[in-house]
């Protein structure tokens, strides 16, 4: 490779495969272990990583979703969750609404599963280089055309996003109102999305022909330009991820079979 990648931090140096195993471990553990302390620990570690990896810019968008979910979940479930029974203890009152402890526990169950996952996986996946990921997928034996389709999605998202911003600015310059009441905002949607969609569809024949001339359909065995360099933490991290997943699944099965008591429990 003529240009070196950025391998300055541990997270960036890990191979995509190691990160995927780690992600799998996190997913299974956060779903099956149902432990509030663990959830908070994951959130804390993820936020520290996000700050250290300088991913805070993109994370701000995610923060909006996290806040909306907080308000919706605790607001709706706190007051009207399906598991609330008559006579349940009230944790507190706001604006004449009762927030029941069972409702808050219900909200905890879902919020403390979704949000740690979002934080942790956001930082892990954002640090994965798409080209490296495609090399990993090809080496894993996934057929080239499927890998291409998957990886190209990210590419087209970037491209259409750029086009959408150009079209939105152009329409604004022509007087399109993107603020204002709901009806006005609804009306602003179509003049932005239709040109983006139409432009991308019109080009597909030329795009297909260009790919054909670059040998996309050729029958010979495809080769890979890039190589994933070895890194000393790849195997330990992958092993940790697998172990975490196996542990979580086993724990959940044993609890379900009532072989062991759930010794890891919620705060509330």
């Amino acid at each position: 490779m003529l240009q070196e990648r950025d391998y300055s931090t541990v997270l960036r140096s890990l191979s995509p495969a190691a990160k995927l195993w780690l992600a799998m471990g996190l997913i299974f553990s956060l779903i099956f272990l149902k432990n509030t302390y663990y959830a908070f620990a994951v959130i804390a570690i993820s936020i520290v990583t996000i700050i250290r990896e300088k991913q805070t810019g993109l994370f701000k968008l995610l923060m909006v979703t996290i806040v909306i979910l907080f308000i919706s979940m605790y607001g709706i479930y706190g007051t009207m969750a399906p598991n609330i029974m008559e006579g349940d203890p009230v944790a507190f009152r706001i604006f004449n609404l009762n927030f029941y402890t069972t409702g808050i526990a219900y909200a905890n169950r879902y919020y403390l599963r979704v949000v740690p996952l979002m934080c942790a996986l956001f930082t892990i996946f954002l640090s994965i280089d798409i080209t490296d990921l495609s090399v990993t997928m090809c080496k894993a034996g996934i057929p080239y055309k499927y890998v291409f389709t998957f990886v190209d999605s990210f590419q087209v998202i970037t491209l259409l996003r750029k086009e959408m911003e150009q079209i939105r600015d152009a329409q604004r310059a022509r007087g399109l109102n993107t603020e204002g009441n709901l009806i006005q905002r609804f009306k602003a949607f179509v003049p932005i999305i239709v040109p983006v969609v139409a432009n991308s569809i019109i080009k597909i024949q030329d795009q297909a022909i260009a790919m054909e001339t670059k040998g996309f359909n050729s029958e010979c065995k495809k080769t890979l330009y890039r190589e994933i360099p070895a890194y000393k933490w790849n195997v330990p991290v992958a092993a940790f991820g697998i172990a975490l997943a196996v542990f979580s699944i086993t724990y959940r099965i044993l609890v379900a079979l009532k072989v062991i008591e759930p010794f890891i429990s919620n705060i509330i």
Binding site: T131, D152, Q155, G215, C220, K221, K222, L224
Partner: peptide, 25 residues
Amino acid sequence: FQDAESQFTQQTVEDEIAFAMCNFG
């Protein structure tokens, strides 16, 4: 072809130049 931007499929200039060669093995 005319519209170069819509013919690109890779993340970097280097990978884009190599793309056709990868396809031909």
